[in-house]
Design a protein around this nucleic acid. Structure first.
Lengths: 367, 367
DNA sequence: GTGAAAGCGCTAACAA
DNA sequence: TTGTTAGCGCTTTCAC
């Protein structure tokens, strides 16, 4: 890859020199130790210890080596192995912010999926700083990661193609615009459909959309699905009923909802682009003395933790976050170990969880 | 719904390719490349590139090497470097569950702190499975981590001493019985004091404690602090007013609070062992038709995300989670790079955030 | 079926 | 000041 960096960058990952590293390390059991005790060469020990080469070694030798290895509690040193094999069994993940409640369950899914295959995850938080992101990507790449999981939210991602040529990559929880990139995410068309249908069934007809940012990959996509479904159900989409948050946060959600309320009060329900945005709507509506769900029903998206504890408990389209993570893990491993295979994308089903932030529209008959 | 799409990638049919790992890796720029282009030996290039050895090289040589390195976008390969130097610039962290809202901010703090020093973090979730934990520790150790951050919650930790002899270790968000172990956590004595004092100031005298589990390191400690402060303020501690959750979760919190309510209703406030436990108390109280804060005031602990959004917004003792992470990062780095230095522990101050779950006791005069 | 030897990319003792 | 050499722990031809 050819990121041009004119700034004076430190070429040494260790940065400035400092005190010598701890030399009082444990003495690791090495292959050499095993070999010596089993009275074979390290090469034989190595062969005996790995299933793929074990058949090259006489059974009793295998037994001896394995026994010694077990006794010594030997574990291969992945650093040495990695240097030799040009793989580190390490996956990098770039995400905006782990503290965003959307991510921990996804990351857990990824970690669990990777762990079972002997891989390990290194996280890199960008805080949406693209310069930092570039730097972090460089760090990950120099760390010889075998694969990359991208969970950045920005819609525009010019470097994507270049990255994908550099390292096996899969996208998580983000929509792609122009690329045919392996991606795992929720089925937002279905999800938005569940939200719209739910409100429709409750008698709502004037349904507003407080979208996540148009700069966010999921933002525009969910908006388009909102349009589709409104049409599909024969509902009019009043442009006044659509507004976007600057970014997918509580504060910007509140701001956006305030803008909506400045334009019109002529709606009975809101579909928010995310749960955080929905919480922002709560706040804005409260300030306008509108209560949820009596005056306005609100549906969130993602189904983050504590939806049940909010005031009122938030009806939300639940995204299978943990499973997205699991799936992402197996996709990236597949991409690494089977480089020739076709790129696969996965859409996971959503589930609408009805709570107390939605109710039938006043005066309407529930169907 | 899920679909499969095939990308442009051609499925190359080169017959029997038993080879699993990707061989189509990018060609990393290596020190050798830099050296060759700068017309020096790799050793000289190596020296020129690291600040600690740069003074050994003639300035113009340094300049040449650095220029070439920059041009080639060279980065040291930490795998090779790690093998040579017996350090990987990698820290392992063992924690119960990243999805517990307490941890993401802490982890972010750690990651940010480590990143600035060129370290990287590998997470290992135990889900409180001690067999798994042992296995994970083994994995981390075999990965040659330079240091370990332990955030396990169990009070008993027999292997701790052994671990500490094996690898530099620091504890996070957990109390230790003996203080020989470097630890960073919040000042729970202060924190519980803030909670008790706050309730006292509101006129509460019968203050119950729904503790986190006695098996949790923080559980017993906070309980003891509760006792101290109750005495200090001259309040009677009725044994009936103390109950413990089996574990620090919402469900067990609810169960524990129910047990409390089964014993007595003669209290006006609860100090919960954690925010999750506090939410459990909300649920239990609700089931008994007791409302917060009208009938019972509740104080949580930790100040996790969304305390403001709960119903009612939860008064909580905020723990500086991110700063704990930052501090943990610098402690572990210090321990690694300065092995002889004495073990230091850090207690960070807590802040009581008063919200709507506490109010003056009925009929009492607020001081 | 097993060992000898080379080398992954890097650093460091020792020479020159 | 620079190059030569050795070696971190492992895998993998290539001989035997």
């Amino acid at each position: 890859m050819s990121f041009v960096d004119t700034s004076e960058r430190s070429v040494d990952s260790k940065g400035d020199s400092r005190v010598a590293p701890s030399r009082v390390r444990r003495t690791q059991v090495t292959l050499h130790d095993v070999a010596k005790l089993a009275e074979v060469d390290t090469s034989t020990a190595s062969r005996a210890l790995r299933s793929s080469t074990r058949h090259l070694v006489r059974p009793d030798t295998v037994a001896r080596v394995v026994a010694v290895a077990a006794e010594l509690n030997y574990r291969v040193n992945p650093v040495a192995k990695g240097l030799k094999e040009q793989r580190t069994m390490t996956i990098g993940m770039i995400l905006p912010d782990l503290a965003n409640p959307l991510f921990p369950p996804i990351v857990r899914g990824i970690e669990d999926g990777l762990r079972k295959k002997g891989y390990v995850l290194i996280l890199a938080n960008t805080d949406r700083d693209s310069a930092l992101e570039k730097e972090l990507l460089d760090v990950l790449l120099s760390r010889q990661i075998d694969g990359l999981i991208l969970a950045t939210a920005e819609l525009d991602y010019p470097q994507l193609e270049e990255i994908m040529e550099t390292v096996p990559t899969i996208l998580v929880n983000r929509a792609t615009k122009d690329f045919l990139v392996p991606t795992v995410s929720s089925d937002d068309y279905q999800g938005i459909g569940q939200a719209v249908q739910h409100l429709y069934d409750l008698g709502h007809r004037r349904i507003a959309h407080v979208g996540g940012s148009e700069k966010a990959s999921t933002g525009t996509l969910r908006y388009q699905h909102y349009l589709s479904w409104m049409h599909r159900l024969g509902l009019e989409v009043d442009p006044d009923l659509v507004v976007f948050a600057d970014w997918v946060t509580q504060d910007f959600g509140e701001k956006a909802c305030s803008q909506l309320l400045a334009k019109t009060h002529d709606f009975t329900a809101i579909i928010a682009g995310s749960d955080l945005v929905a919480l922002g709507c709560y706040a804005a509506l409260r300030k306008h003395n509108l209560s949820v769900p009596e005056d306005v029903s609100v549906v969130g998206y993602n189904g983050i933790i504590f939806c049940n504890e909010f005031s009122p408990p938030l009806t939300s389209v639940h995204v299978p976050k943990y499973d997205i993570g699991l799936s992402a893990a197996s996709l990236i491993i597949e991409a690494i170990e089977n480089p020739g295979a076709p790129a696969v994308s996965v859409l996971l089903p959503t589930t609408l969880q009805v709570r107390s932030s939605t109710k039938s529209v006043a005066g309407a008959q529930k169907i």
